[in-house]
Design a protein around this nucleic acid. Structure first.
Ligand code: MN
Ligand code: MN
Ligand code: MN
Ligand code: MN
Lengths: 219, 219
DNA sequence: ATTAATTTTTAGACAAATCTAAAAAAAAGA
DNA sequence: TCTTTTTTTTAGATTTGTCTAAAAATTAAT
Protein backbone atom coordinates (compact mmCIF):
# COMPACT_ATOMS: atom_id res chain seq x y z
CA UNK A 1 0.00 0.00 0.00
CA UNK A 2 1.12 3.55 -0.76
CA UNK A 3 0.71 6.64 1.35
CA UNK A 4 0.66 10.35 0.64
CA UNK A 5 3.51 12.59 1.74
CA UNK A 6 1.24 14.14 4.39
CA UNK A 7 0.25 10.72 5.72
CA UNK A 8 3.89 9.62 5.85
CA UNK A 9 4.93 12.72 7.76
CA UNK A 10 2.18 12.12 10.32
CA UNK A 11 3.09 8.44 10.69
CA UNK A 12 6.78 9.14 11.13
CA UNK A 13 6.22 11.87 13.70
CA UNK A 14 3.81 9.73 15.71
CA UNK A 15 6.52 7.06 15.71
CA UNK A 16 9.12 9.48 17.05
CA UNK A 17 6.83 10.83 19.77
CA UNK A 18 6.08 7.26 20.83
CA UNK A 19 9.75 6.73 21.61
CA UNK A 20 9.29 9.17 24.48
CA UNK A 21 5.82 8.35 25.71
CA UNK A 22 3.65 5.32 25.06
CA UNK A 23 0.56 7.35 24.13
CA UNK A 24 0.74 10.39 21.88
CA UNK A 25 -1.53 13.41 22.23
CA UNK A 26 -2.98 15.72 19.62
CA UNK A 27 -1.29 18.94 20.67
CA UNK A 28 2.24 17.57 20.76
CA UNK A 29 1.84 16.03 17.31
CA UNK A 30 0.43 19.30 15.99
CA UNK A 31 3.42 21.13 17.44
CA UNK A 32 5.85 18.62 15.93
CA UNK A 33 4.28 18.90 12.48
CA UNK A 34 3.90 22.67 12.75
CA UNK A 35 0.19 22.43 12.09
CA UNK A 36 -3.06 22.92 14.00
CA UNK A 37 -4.68 20.42 16.40
CA UNK A 38 -7.85 20.40 14.27
CA UNK A 39 -5.84 19.25 11.26
CA UNK A 40 -4.29 16.50 13.35
CA UNK A 41 -7.67 15.20 14.45
CA UNK A 42 -8.79 15.06 10.81
CA UNK A 43 -5.76 13.06 9.80
CA UNK A 44 -6.01 10.73 12.81
CA UNK A 45 -9.41 9.62 11.57
CA UNK A 46 -8.01 8.83 8.13
CA UNK A 47 -5.08 6.88 9.57
CA UNK A 48 -7.42 4.91 11.81
CA UNK A 49 -9.61 3.97 8.85
CA UNK A 50 -6.48 2.70 7.09
CA UNK A 51 -5.65 0.62 10.18
CA UNK A 52 -2.43 2.46 10.85
CA UNK A 53 -3.53 3.83 14.20
CA UNK A 54 -5.11 2.73 17.47
CA UNK A 55 -7.15 5.75 18.38
CA UNK A 56 -9.88 6.55 20.86
CA UNK A 57 -11.44 9.99 20.91
CA UNK A 58 -10.02 12.20 23.64
CA UNK A 59 -7.90 9.29 24.93
CA UNK A 60 -4.75 9.67 22.82
CA UNK A 61 -3.39 7.34 20.14
CA UNK A 62 -0.54 5.03 19.15
CA UNK A 63 0.53 3.37 15.92
CA UNK A 64 -0.95 -0.04 15.16
CA UNK A 65 1.56 -2.79 14.33
CA UNK A 66 0.88 -2.07 10.67
CA UNK A 67 1.47 1.64 11.27
CA UNK A 68 4.66 0.82 13.11
CA UNK A 69 6.02 -1.13 10.16
CA UNK A 70 5.24 1.72 7.81
CA UNK A 71 6.91 4.20 10.16
CA UNK A 72 10.09 2.17 10.48
CA UNK A 73 10.31 1.98 6.72
CA UNK A 74 10.11 5.76 6.44
CA UNK A 75 12.73 6.13 9.16
CA UNK A 76 14.94 3.69 7.25
CA UNK A 77 14.66 5.73 4.06
CA UNK A 78 15.27 8.99 5.90
CA UNK A 79 18.43 7.76 7.62
CA UNK A 80 19.85 6.02 4.57
CA UNK A 81 19.51 9.23 2.58
CA UNK A 82 21.10 11.23 5.41
CA UNK A 83 24.03 8.81 5.39
CA UNK A 84 24.29 9.14 1.61
CA UNK A 85 24.22 12.94 1.73
CA UNK A 86 27.05 13.10 4.27
CA UNK A 87 29.33 10.27 3.15
CA UNK A 88 28.89 10.52 -0.63
CA UNK A 89 27.88 14.10 -1.37
CA UNK A 90 29.96 15.72 1.39
CA UNK A 91 27.19 17.56 3.24
CA UNK A 92 27.73 18.61 6.86
CA UNK A 93 25.77 16.42 9.25
CA UNK A 94 23.68 19.38 10.44
CA UNK A 95 22.50 20.24 6.91
CA UNK A 96 21.00 16.95 5.75
CA UNK A 97 17.80 16.64 7.74
CA UNK A 98 15.64 18.92 5.61
CA UNK A 99 16.70 17.27 2.37
CA UNK A 100 16.17 13.75 3.73
CA UNK A 101 12.74 14.96 4.83
CA UNK A 102 11.86 15.10 1.12
CA UNK A 103 13.86 12.15 -0.18
CA UNK A 104 12.28 9.82 2.39
CA UNK A 105 9.01 10.00 0.45
CA UNK A 106 10.40 8.38 -2.69
CA UNK A 107 9.19 4.95 -1.73
CA UNK A 108 10.47 2.58 -4.39
CA UNK A 109 11.51 -0.65 -2.63
CA UNK A 110 14.25 -1.53 -5.09
CA UNK A 111 15.70 1.96 -4.85
CA UNK A 112 16.13 1.72 -1.09
CA UNK A 113 17.48 -1.81 -1.24
CA UNK A 114 20.08 -0.79 -3.84
CA UNK A 115 20.92 2.42 -1.98
CA UNK A 116 21.49 0.38 1.18
CA UNK A 117 23.84 -1.95 -0.68
CA UNK A 118 25.66 0.97 -2.33
CA UNK A 119 26.26 2.48 1.11
CA UNK A 120 27.44 -0.90 2.48
CA UNK A 121 24.52 -1.41 4.84
CA UNK A 122 25.33 1.37 7.31
CA UNK A 123 24.25 0.78 10.93
CA UNK A 124 23.78 4.40 11.98
CA UNK A 125 22.97 7.69 10.31
CA UNK A 126 25.18 10.79 10.59
CA UNK A 127 23.51 11.70 13.90
CA UNK A 128 24.31 8.28 15.31
CA UNK A 129 20.72 7.04 15.11
CA UNK A 130 20.28 3.37 14.16
CA UNK A 131 19.16 2.51 10.62
CA UNK A 132 16.58 -0.30 10.58
CA UNK A 133 17.24 -3.08 8.08
CA UNK A 134 14.88 -4.18 5.31
CA UNK A 135 12.88 -6.26 7.79
CA UNK A 136 12.47 -3.36 10.19
CA UNK A 137 15.03 -4.64 12.68
CA UNK A 138 16.96 -1.90 14.46
CA UNK A 139 20.65 -2.58 15.05
CA UNK A 140 21.46 -2.37 18.75
CA UNK A 141 23.68 0.59 19.47
CA UNK A 142 24.93 0.46 23.07
CA UNK A 143 25.30 4.04 23.94
CA UNK A 144 24.77 6.09 27.05
CA UNK A 145 24.30 9.74 27.79
CA UNK A 146 27.50 11.61 28.54
CA UNK A 147 25.84 12.83 31.73
CA UNK A 148 26.13 9.21 32.97
CA UNK A 149 29.71 8.44 32.01
CA UNK A 150 32.27 7.87 34.81
CA UNK A 151 35.18 10.31 35.17
CA UNK A 152 38.52 9.74 33.48
CA UNK A 153 36.92 7.48 30.87
CA UNK A 154 37.57 7.92 27.19
CA UNK A 155 34.40 7.72 25.07
CA UNK A 156 33.42 8.08 21.44
CA UNK A 157 30.44 10.18 20.37
CA UNK A 158 27.76 8.02 18.74
CA UNK A 159 24.71 10.27 18.48
CA UNK A 160 23.04 13.48 19.54
CA UNK A 161 19.70 13.45 21.30
CA UNK A 162 18.37 16.86 20.38
CA UNK A 163 19.03 17.59 16.74
CA UNK A 164 18.09 21.25 16.62
CA UNK A 165 20.38 23.56 14.64
CA UNK A 166 21.10 25.27 17.97
CA UNK A 167 22.80 22.26 19.56
CA UNK A 168 24.54 21.31 16.33
CA UNK A 169 26.00 24.80 16.16
CA UNK A 170 27.28 24.45 19.71
CA UNK A 171 28.80 21.03 19.05
CA UNK A 172 30.58 22.33 15.99
CA UNK A 173 32.01 25.05 18.21
CA UNK A 174 33.31 22.38 20.62
CA UNK A 175 34.68 20.38 17.62
CA UNK A 176 32.41 17.51 18.58
CA UNK A 177 31.16 15.21 15.82
CA UNK A 178 29.93 11.64 15.52
CA UNK A 179 33.05 9.52 16.06
CA UNK A 180 34.92 12.21 18.00
CA UNK A 181 36.94 10.89 20.95
CA UNK A 182 36.29 12.65 24.25
CA UNK A 183 37.99 12.26 27.62
CA UNK A 184 35.88 12.97 30.71
CA UNK A 185 38.08 14.94 33.11
CA UNK A 186 35.78 15.96 35.95
CA UNK A 187 32.12 16.34 36.85
CA UNK A 188 31.03 19.35 38.92
CA UNK A 189 28.16 18.46 41.21
CA UNK A 190 27.06 22.08 41.68
CA UNK A 191 25.46 22.37 38.23
CA UNK A 192 26.19 19.00 36.65
CA UNK A 193 28.64 20.53 34.21
CA UNK A 194 31.54 18.41 32.99
CA UNK A 195 35.08 19.25 32.00
CA UNK A 196 36.07 17.35 28.90
CA UNK A 197 38.97 17.15 26.52
CA UNK A 198 38.13 16.89 22.83
CA UNK A 199 40.91 15.45 20.68
CA UNK A 200 43.90 17.76 20.70
CA UNK A 201 41.95 20.87 21.74
CA UNK A 202 42.25 22.51 25.14
CA UNK A 203 39.97 21.16 27.89
CA UNK A 204 36.58 22.85 28.13
CA UNK A 205 33.36 22.63 30.11
CA UNK A 206 29.95 21.60 28.82
CA UNK A 207 26.67 22.16 30.62
CA UNK A 208 24.59 19.29 32.00
CA UNK A 209 21.96 19.93 29.33
CA UNK A 210 24.54 19.48 26.59
CA UNK A 211 25.98 16.38 28.29
CA UNK A 212 22.53 14.82 28.45
CA UNK A 213 22.15 15.29 24.72
CA UNK A 214 25.45 13.74 23.73
CA UNK A 215 25.39 9.95 23.49
CA UNK A 216 28.64 7.99 23.53
CA UNK A 217 30.07 4.51 23.79
CA UNK A 218 33.21 3.15 25.45
CA UNK A 219 36.45 2.16 23.68
CA UNK B 1 10.49 30.50 -6.32
CA UNK B 2 9.17 27.03 -5.58
CA UNK B 3 6.66 24.98 -7.52
CA UNK B 4 4.36 22.11 -6.65
CA UNK B 5 4.99 18.63 -8.01
CA UNK B 6 1.97 18.99 -10.30
CA UNK B 7 3.21 22.32 -11.65
CA UNK B 8 6.68 20.89 -12.26
CA UNK B 9 5.28 17.92 -14.15
CA UNK B 10 3.27 20.23 -16.38
CA UNK B 11 6.24 22.52 -17.01
CA UNK B 12 8.58 19.66 -17.87
CA UNK B 13 6.12 18.03 -20.24
CA UNK B 14 5.40 21.29 -22.02
CA UNK B 15 9.15 21.66 -22.45
CA UNK B 16 9.47 18.21 -24.00
CA UNK B 17 6.54 18.75 -26.37
CA UNK B 18 8.11 22.04 -27.46
CA UNK B 19 11.16 20.15 -28.70
CA UNK B 20 8.92 18.70 -31.38
CA UNK B 21 6.64 21.61 -32.21
CA UNK B 22 7.00 25.28 -31.39
CA UNK B 23 3.45 25.63 -30.04
CA UNK B 24 1.91 23.06 -27.74
CA UNK B 25 -1.78 22.18 -27.69
CA UNK B 26 -4.05 21.17 -24.85
CA UNK B 27 -4.90 17.66 -26.00
CA UNK B 28 -1.34 16.48 -26.54
CA UNK B 29 -0.28 17.77 -23.14
CA UNK B 30 -3.28 16.06 -21.56
CA UNK B 31 -2.31 12.83 -23.28
CA UNK B 32 1.31 13.16 -22.16
CA UNK B 33 0.33 13.77 -18.55
CA UNK B 34 -2.37 11.10 -18.61
CA UNK B 35 -4.97 13.59 -17.53
CA UNK B 36 -8.01 15.34 -19.02
CA UNK B 37 -7.95 18.43 -21.28
CA UNK B 38 -10.13 20.32 -18.80
CA UNK B 39 -7.51 19.80 -16.09
CA UNK B 40 -4.82 21.07 -18.45
CA UNK B 41 -6.72 24.27 -19.16
CA UNK B 42 -7.05 24.90 -15.42
CA UNK B 43 -3.33 24.49 -14.86
CA UNK B 44 -2.41 26.60 -17.90
CA UNK B 45 -4.18 29.56 -16.31
CA UNK B 46 -2.21 29.10 -13.11
CA UNK B 47 1.10 28.84 -14.95
CA UNK B 48 0.31 31.95 -16.96
CA UNK B 49 -0.45 33.92 -13.80
CA UNK B 50 2.96 32.85 -12.49
CA UNK B 51 4.58 34.09 -15.72
CA UNK B 52 5.79 30.65 -16.70
CA UNK B 53 3.70 30.46 -19.84
CA UNK B 54 2.79 32.47 -22.93
CA UNK B 55 -0.80 31.48 -23.44
CA UNK B 56 -3.68 32.74 -25.52
CA UNK B 57 -7.06 31.08 -25.26
CA UNK B 58 -7.68 28.60 -28.08
CA UNK B 59 -4.36 29.58 -29.71
CA UNK B 60 -1.95 27.16 -28.02
CA UNK B 61 0.87 27.94 -25.62
CA UNK B 62 4.63 27.90 -25.07
CA UNK B 63 6.89 28.32 -22.06
CA UNK B 64 8.01 31.86 -21.25
CA UNK B 65 11.75 32.36 -20.84
CA UNK B 66 11.21 32.04 -17.10
CA UNK B 67 9.25 28.83 -17.63
CA UNK B 68 12.00 27.52 -19.87
CA UNK B 69 14.62 28.05 -17.19
CA UNK B 70 12.49 26.22 -14.65
CA UNK B 71 11.92 23.36 -17.10
CA UNK B 72 15.61 22.93 -17.88
CA UNK B 73 16.33 22.78 -14.18
CA UNK B 74 13.83 19.96 -13.74
CA UNK B 75 15.28 18.13 -16.73
CA UNK B 76 18.73 18.55 -15.21
CA UNK B 77 17.62 17.01 -11.94
CA UNK B 78 15.81 14.17 -13.70
CA UNK B 79 18.79 13.21 -15.83
CA UNK B 80 21.35 13.53 -13.05
CA UNK B 81 19.29 11.16 -10.89
CA UNK B 82 18.92 8.73 -13.80
CA UNK B 83 22.68 8.75 -14.22
CA UNK B 84 23.12 8.16 -10.49
CA UNK B 85 20.66 5.28 -10.45
CA UNK B 86 22.42 3.46 -13.29
CA UNK B 87 26.09 4.16 -12.57
CA UNK B 88 26.04 4.10 -8.77
CA UNK B 89 23.11 1.94 -7.75
CA UNK B 90 23.34 -0.52 -10.66
CA UNK B 91 19.85 -0.10 -12.08
CA UNK B 92 19.14 -1.13 -15.69
CA UNK B 93 18.74 1.92 -17.94
CA UNK B 94 15.13 1.00 -18.74
CA UNK B 95 14.11 0.94 -15.05
CA UNK B 96 15.17 4.39 -13.88
CA UNK B 97 12.69 6.74 -15.49
CA UNK B 98 9.82 6.24 -13.02
CA UNK B 99 12.09 6.70 -10.00
CA UNK B 100 13.73 9.83 -11.44
CA UNK B 101 10.22 11.10 -12.08
CA UNK B 102 9.89 11.39 -8.29
CA UNK B 103 13.44 12.34 -7.35
CA UNK B 104 13.41 15.26 -9.81
CA UNK B 105 11.01 17.11 -7.50
CA UNK B 106 13.47 17.34 -4.62
CA UNK B 107 14.60 20.81 -5.54
CA UNK B 108 17.41 21.72 -3.18
CA UNK B 109 20.02 23.64 -5.17
CA UNK B 110 22.97 22.50 -3.09
CA UNK B 111 21.85 18.87 -3.37
CA UNK B 112 21.89 18.96 -7.15
CA UNK B 113 25.17 20.83 -7.31
CA UNK B 114 26.82 18.29 -5.00
CA UNK B 115 25.22 15.34 -6.81
CA UNK B 116 26.57 16.70 -10.09
CA UNK B 117 30.06 16.93 -8.63
CA UNK B 118 29.81 13.45 -7.08
CA UNK B 119 28.90 12.05 -10.51
CA UNK B 120 31.78 13.98 -12.15
CA UNK B 121 29.59 16.32 -14.18
CA UNK B 122 28.14 13.77 -16.60
CA UNK B 123 27.25 15.06 -20.08
CA UNK B 124 24.49 12.60 -20.92
CA UNK B 125 21.97 10.51 -19.02
CA UNK B 126 21.68 6.71 -19.44
CA UNK B 127 19.43 7.21 -22.49
CA UNK B 128 22.03 9.42 -24.15
CA UNK B 129 20.10 12.62 -23.54
CA UNK B 130 22.20 15.70 -22.70
CA UNK B 131 22.31 16.93 -19.11
CA UNK B 132 22.13 20.75 -18.88
CA UNK B 133 24.69 22.36 -16.59
CA UNK B 134 23.90 24.58 -13.60
CA UNK B 135 23.39 27.56 -15.90
CA UNK B 136 20.96 25.69 -18.12
CA UNK B 137 23.43 25.17 -20.94
CA UNK B 138 22.95 21.90 -22.84
CA UNK B 139 26.13 20.12 -23.91
CA UNK B 140 26.14 19.58 -27.67
CA UNK B 141 25.88 15.90 -28.51
CA UNK B 142 26.48 15.32 -32.23
CA UNK B 143 24.40 12.35 -33.00
CA UNK B 144 22.35 11.20 -35.93
CA UNK B 145 19.58 8.70 -36.46
CA UNK B 146 20.77 5.24 -37.49
CA UNK B 147 18.35 5.47 -40.41
CA UNK B 148 20.73 8.11 -41.85
CA UNK B 149 24.06 6.42 -41.33
CA UNK B 150 26.04 5.34 -44.41
CA UNK B 151 26.68 1.62 -44.97
CA UNK B 152 29.82 -0.14 -43.71
CA UNK B 153 30.32 2.54 -41.07
CA UNK B 154 30.96 1.66 -37.44
CA UNK B 155 28.93 3.74 -35.01
CA UNK B 156 28.37 3.96 -31.26
CA UNK B 157 24.90 4.19 -29.78
CA UNK B 158 24.41 7.48 -27.98
CA UNK B 159 20.69 7.67 -27.25
CA UNK B 160 17.23 6.29 -27.94
CA UNK B 161 14.49 8.51 -29.29
CA UNK B 162 11.42 6.66 -28.10
CA UNK B 163 11.92 5.55 -24.51
CA UNK B 164 8.90 3.30 -24.12
CA UNK B 165 9.42 -0.02 -22.31
CA UNK B 166 8.49 -1.67 -25.63
CA UNK B 167 11.50 -0.38 -27.54
CA UNK B 168 13.83 -0.85 -24.59
CA UNK B 169 12.76 -4.50 -24.40
CA UNK B 170 13.54 -4.90 -28.09
CA UNK B 171 16.93 -3.23 -27.77
CA UNK B 172 17.84 -5.47 -24.88
CA UNK B 173 16.96 -8.40 -27.11
CA UNK B 174 19.36 -7.08 -29.78
CA UNK B 175 22.01 -6.51 -27.06
CA UNK B 176 21.98 -2.82 -27.89
CA UNK B 177 22.79 -0.34 -25.13
CA UNK B 178 24.14 3.18 -24.85
CA UNK B 179 27.80 2.88 -25.83
CA UNK B 180 27.31 -0.32 -27.85
CA UNK B 181 29.36 -0.45 -31.06
CA UNK B 182 27.35 -1.29 -34.17
CA UNK B 183 28.51 -1.94 -37.73
CA UNK B 184 26.08 -1.04 -40.52
CA UNK B 185 26.24 -3.87 -43.06
CA UNK B 186 23.50 -3.12 -45.56
CA UNK B 187 20.34 -1.06 -46.02
CA UNK B 188 17.37 -2.65 -47.80
CA UNK B 189 15.47 -0.05 -49.79
CA UNK B 190 12.29 -2.15 -49.97
CA UNK B 191 11.28 -1.48 -46.36
CA UNK B 192 14.14 0.62 -45.04
CA UNK B 193 15.34 -2.19 -42.81
CA UNK B 194 19.04 -2.42 -42.02
CA UNK B 195 21.34 -5.34 -41.41
CA UNK B 196 23.65 -4.62 -38.53
CA UNK B 197 26.30 -6.38 -36.51
CA UNK B 198 26.25 -5.79 -32.78
CA UNK B 199 29.56 -6.52 -31.06
CA UNK B 200 30.38 -10.22 -31.26
CA UNK B 201 26.81 -11.32 -31.93
CA UNK B 202 25.59 -12.67 -35.27
CA UNK B 203 24.37 -10.09 -37.80
CA UNK B 204 20.69 -9.22 -37.58
CA UNK B 205 18.13 -6.95 -39.17
CA UNK B 206 16.31 -4.05 -37.57
CA UNK B 207 13.23 -2.33 -38.94
CA UNK B 208 13.29 1.25 -40.22
CA UNK B 209 11.17 2.31 -37.26
CA UNK B 210 13.75 0.95 -34.85
CA UNK B 211 16.61 2.50 -36.85
CA UNK B 212 14.94 5.89 -36.68
CA UNK B 213 14.78 5.64 -32.92
CA UNK B 214 18.42 4.73 -32.38
CA UNK B 215 20.79 7.68 -32.30
CA UNK B 216 24.51 7.15 -32.81
CA UNK B 217 27.78 8.95 -33.38
CA UNK B 218 30.85 8.07 -35.45
CA UNK B 219 34.15 6.72 -34.07
C1' DA C 1 -18.03 19.48 44.22
C1' DT C 2 -18.14 23.25 41.43
C1' DT C 3 -15.72 26.24 38.69
C1' DA C 4 -11.94 27.35 35.63
C1' DA C 5 -8.48 26.08 32.37
C1' DT C 6 -6.81 23.05 28.98
C1' DT C 7 -7.23 19.73 25.43
C1' DT C 8 -9.61 17.74 21.80
C1' DT C 9 -13.12 17.47 18.52
C1' DT C 10 -16.75 19.27 15.34
C1' DA C 11 -18.66 22.51 11.98
C1' DG C 12 -17.93 24.96 8.19
C1' DA C 13 -14.84 27.20 4.93
C1' DC C 14 -10.96 27.28 1.59
C1' DA C 15 -7.08 26.27 -1.85
C1' DA C 16 -5.03 22.86 -5.02
C1' DA C 17 -5.73 19.59 -8.37
C1' DT C 18 -8.62 16.77 -10.43
C1' DC C 19 -13.05 15.12 -12.87
C1' DT C 20 -17.63 15.02 -16.04
C1' DA C 21 -20.82 17.24 -18.88
C1' DA C 22 -21.93 20.98 -21.56
C1' DA C 23 -20.89 25.25 -24.11
C1' DA C 24 -17.93 27.89 -27.17
C1' DA C 25 -14.45 28.44 -30.59
C1' DA C 26 -11.67 26.82 -34.34
C1' DA C 27 -10.70 23.71 -38.09
C1' DA C 28 -12.15 20.64 -41.64
C1' DG C 29 -15.29 19.14 -45.16
C1' DA C 30 -19.05 19.43 -48.41
C1' DT D 1 -20.20 29.34 -47.56
C1' DC D 2 -22.46 26.62 -44.43
C1' DT D 3 -22.36 22.34 -41.88
C1' DT D 4 -20.01 18.98 -39.23
C1' DT D 5 -16.24 17.53 -36.49
C1' DT D 6 -12.58 18.41 -33.41
C1' DT D 7 -10.44 21.09 -29.96
C1' DT D 8 -10.63 23.93 -26.13
C1' DT D 9 -12.79 26.16 -22.45
C1' DT D 10 -16.35 26.85 -18.79
C1' DA D 11 -19.47 25.34 -15.09
C1' DG D 12 -19.99 22.80 -11.34
C1' DA D 13 -18.60 18.86 -8.38
C1' DT D 14 -15.11 16.02 -5.70
C1' DT D 15 -10.97 14.71 -2.90
C1' DT D 16 -7.13 15.88 0.03
C1' DG D 17 -5.25 18.57 3.40
C1' DT D 18 -5.52 22.57 5.69
C1' DC D 19 -7.61 26.50 8.51
C1' DT D 20 -10.67 29.35 12.18
C1' DA D 21 -14.13 29.55 15.46
C1' DA D 22 -16.99 27.31 18.49
C1' DA D 23 -18.56 23.27 21.09
C1' DA D 24 -17.56 19.23 23.93
C1' DA D 25 -14.77 16.49 26.92
C1' DT D 26 -11.15 16.11 30.14
C1' DT D 27 -8.15 17.80 33.70
C1' DA D 28 -6.77 21.07 37.26
C1' DA D 29 -7.83 24.37 40.82
C1' DT D 30 -10.42 26.40 44.34
MN1 MN E 1 9.09 14.21 5.27
MN1 MN F 1 19.18 11.66 11.48
MN1 MN G 1 7.86 14.01 -12.12
MN1 MN H 1 16.44 9.87 -19.57
Amino acid sequence: MNFSIAEENYIKNIYHLQQQSELVNTNSLAYELQTKPASVTDMLKKLQIKNLLDYEKYKGFRLSSKGNKVAINIVRRHRLWEFFLVTKLGFEWDKVHAIAEELEHVSNQELIQKLDRFLNHPQTDPHGDPIPDGNGKMPVIHQLSMADVVEKKKVIVSSVGNQSPAILELLNHYHINIGTEIKINQRFSFDGSIEIKVGKYAACIISELVAKNIFVYHE
